[in-house]
Design a protein around this nucleic acid. Structure first.
Lengths: 346, 346
DNA sequence: TTGAAAGCGCTACCAC
DNA sequence: GTGGTAGCGCTTTCAA
C-alpha cells in the first residue's frame, strides 16, 4: 500500500493524505479522521526510505559497538545501554542502526555512516583517553553523544556518563571502613576513560586515609574471566597478599571468585570482594560478602538519557549537554575480618 | 557528493558512472578505472536511501531483541550473536537494524519492520514452544531465520541452533561419572525452547543411568542472579540436598555461587557446579571444579551462520536451511566428592 | 560502450 | 482547505 494508492481509494490527492497523516494544521478535522481510519484499515505505513529521501532526514541513529579484536568479546553493558536507548528511539520514531566493528577499525564505520547518509546522529561508545574520534566527528559535522567521557580532550562534546570515580571511591571507603588496608584493584584497560576514573576514585579514597596506593596491587587488563582468575591467584599467593579485591567488571569477577575458590579461601571470611555490578538484589538474605553498585540499571538509564540528548541535539532543542549519573550505590555489610592472607593458605 | 556531481566532474553520464561502480559488464575497463579512482578521490559513496528506493531492496536486516518486561534484563548472549551476525552483514553490505522491545509486545516490531519496508529480512530471537511468530512471519512473507528452534511447530522455517540437548546431556553425564546422583537443574523459563531442550538432555542422561529425574531438583525461572541465589539456598538447605548443580546461564551461576558461598560450602569439595558458559579458558590451572561448555563462542558462530543463511535466502542462493552447532564442549576434571549435604552445614 | 529519461514513494513548494 | 508538481539520488529500461 503506497500513499498514492491510499489517496486514490480516498479520492484525495497524495498531498492531502500526507498532510493529514503528518499532522499538518491546514487539514480539516473531518478529512484527517477519514484518512487516519483508511490508513489503519489498509495497514498503510509510509515507506521510510522514500520519506527520508524526500526529507533528507534518515530517522535513524547509529551505534558503533567496538569489540576487542583480540578476544572477540562484547562488553555486556552494551546490551543494557542499547536497551535503554532503543526505548527512547522507538518512542520518537527513530530506528537504531548497529555497526559492530573490531576496535582497531572503528573510523571506517563512522565514515561509512556519514558517506552513506543513513543515520542522522551517532552514539559514541567506549571513549578512550583523548579519544581521536571526537575531533573526527566534530570535523565531520554529524551530531553525536558520547557514552562516557574522554579525559584530556580539548574539544567540547555532549556526553552522558556514570560517576565511575565516585562509585569506586565509595566502594573503597567501604572496604576501608571494614578494616581492610591492602585492597587490590582489578581494573579495565587504562586507555579506556572509565578505567582511569575508577582508578582515580580508588586512589582518592586510599590517599584520604593516608594510605599510599601500592602499584603491586593495581592491575589493568581486558575484562575477561581468565584475566580475573589469573590475577587473583597471583595476588593471593603473594607474601603480602591483599585482604580485599575491588573488581571493575562482572565478568572478571567470575574469574576472581573462581581464583579465590581455588586458593581454598572463603569469601567474607578470608577475603572480601566488591564487584562493580548489581549483585545486590538478594542482599537482603544476610550475605556476609560486601556487595556493591548497580551499574546495569545505571547503564540502561544512561542509554535512555543519551538517546534523548541526541534527539534534542538533532532537533535543535535546548537541554543539558552533559549528564553525570550516580551509580545508584547500595553497599552491604560484611561480617568478614580483614586479616592478611598468606601464600599456600590452601 | 552525489552521483550526478561525480558524473559531471568526469564528463560522463550518471548512468555510466553507476554502471561502472556497480560492476556492470558493458562498461569499458578504462572508464571503470577512471570512475573508481574519481569516486575514491572525492569520497563518493551512494546514498543508501536513494539506492534502496530505486532497487526496492533495503539492504538491511532487522533483529528484534526481546527484553523481559519484568526484569528489564537483556540476555547477554544477544551481544555475542549480534557481533557474529554483524561481521557477516558488513562484509555483504547489509546494515543491521535493532529493535529492542518488551517481550510482551513483539508483534508490533515485526509488523512495523514490514510496513515501513526498511528491512529485507529478519532474525527471530528467543523462540518459544510453538512460537506464534513463525506462522506470523510465514504469512507476512518476509525472509527470516530463527536463532534457535521452536518445538511442536508444524510450520517449516529456517534455523540455526546450538545443540542444547546434547550439551546438557554431556554435562550431566560428566557429573554422573564423578559419582553424583542428586544433580539439580537450574533452568531458564520452560516456555523457551532452549530450556525445554536442555532439560530433555539432563533427563536423558539421568534416565540412561537408571535415575528417575526428581521434580524437586528441577527449577525453571528467569535467568537472574537473585533467582540462582535464592534457589541455591533453598536447595542446599533441604534434608536431601543435591551434591551438584547444573546451571543454564552465566548470570544465574553468579547467584548460585554466591548462594553456595553463603551456605559456607566449598566448591569442588562440598558441591560441584557446572555452568553453561565458557569458563574454561583457565582450566589449565588445575581447578578442582568441573567446567563446561563454550556457548559464548558458539553463539557468536551461530550469529555468523544465521546471518549468512538469511543472506543466502534473500539472494535465492541454495544452501542448508537448518544448522545445528555443537557447543564446543570442554569438560574439566573435578576432584570434588559427591557426598550429600545437610541443612545448616554452614 | 554510452546516454536520456522514467520512476521508486514521499514531501514541500506553489497555486487555487 | 485542497491539489498539481518538482524534486530527493539512485537504478534501469530503451535508444543510439
Amino acid at each position: 500500500m503506497t500513499l498514492k494508492e491510499l489517496s486514490n481509494i480516498l479520492g484525495l490527492s497524495p498531498t492531502t493524505v500526507s498532510r493529514a497523516l503528518n499532522g499538518y494544521p491546514e487539514v480539516s478535522e473531518a478529512t484527517r479522521k477519514r484518512v487516519a481510519a483508511a490508513a489503519r484499515e489498509h495497514g498503510y505505513a509510509p515507506n521510510t526510505r522514500a520519506r527520508s529521501l524526500a526529507t533528507g532526514r534518515a530517522m535513524a541513529i547509529g551505534h558503533v559497538i567496538p569489540i576487542s579484536a583480540k578476544h572477540e568479546m562484547v562488553n555486556p553493558v552494551f546490551g543494557d545501554f542499547i536497551a535503554g536507548a532503543g526505548e527512547v528511539y522507538s518512542r520518537n520514531g527513530y530506528d537504531m542502526l548497529l555497526s559492530v566493528v573490531p576496535d582497531d577499525d572503528e573510523d571506517s564505520a563512522y565514515r561509512s555512516f556519514i558517506t552513506k547518509r543513513n543515520v542522522d546522529g551517532i552514539i559514541l561508545h567506549a571513549p578512550t583517553l583523548n579519544d581521536p574520534r571526537i575531533p573526527l566527528l566534530n570535523s565531520l559535522g554529524l551530531p553525536y553523544v558520547v557514552h562516557g567521557r574522554s579525559s584530556d580532550t580539548d574539544a567540547s562534546y555532549a556526553w552522558v556518563d556514570v560517576n565511575n570515580k565516585r562509585a569506586f571511591q565509595r566502594a573503597t571507603e567501604f572496604l576501608l571502613d571494614l578494616g581492610h588496608r591492602r585492597i587490590a584493584l582489578v581494573n579495565g584497560l587504562e586507555h579506556m576513560d572509565f578505567a582511569i576514573r575508577r582508578r582515580a576514585g580508588y586512589e582518592a579514597a586510599l590517599t584520604a586515609r593516608g594510605i599510599t596506593p601500592d602499584a603491586a596491587l593495581m592491575f589493568a587488563g581486558e575484562m575477561t574471566e581468565a584475566q580475573g582468575h589469573d590475577l587473583t591467584r597471583t595476588l593471593l599467593a603473594q607474601p603480602n597478599a591483599p585482604t580485599a579485591i575491588l573488581v571493575s567488571s562482572m565478568i572478571t569477577a567470575i574469574g576472581v571468585r573462581r581464583g579465590i575458590e581455588e586458593m581454598g579461601l572463603r569469601m567474607g571470611r578470608d577475603v572480601s570482594l566488591i564487584t562493580h555490578d548489581d549483585e545486590l538484589s538478594y542482599f537482603r538474605n544476610g550475605a556476609d560478602i560486601p556487595v556493591y553498585t548497580a551499574t546495569r540499571s545505571s547503564v540502561r538509564d544512561a542509554g535512555r538519557k543519551a538517546a534523548q540528548m541526541l534527539i534534542d541535539i538533532m532537533q535543535h532543542r535546548d537541554s543539558p549537554r552533559e549528564i553525570l549519573l550516580e551509580a545508584d550505590l547500595t553497599l552491604g555489610l560484611s561480617t568478614g575480618p580483614a586479616t592478611p592472607l598468606h601464600a599456600g593458605t590452601r
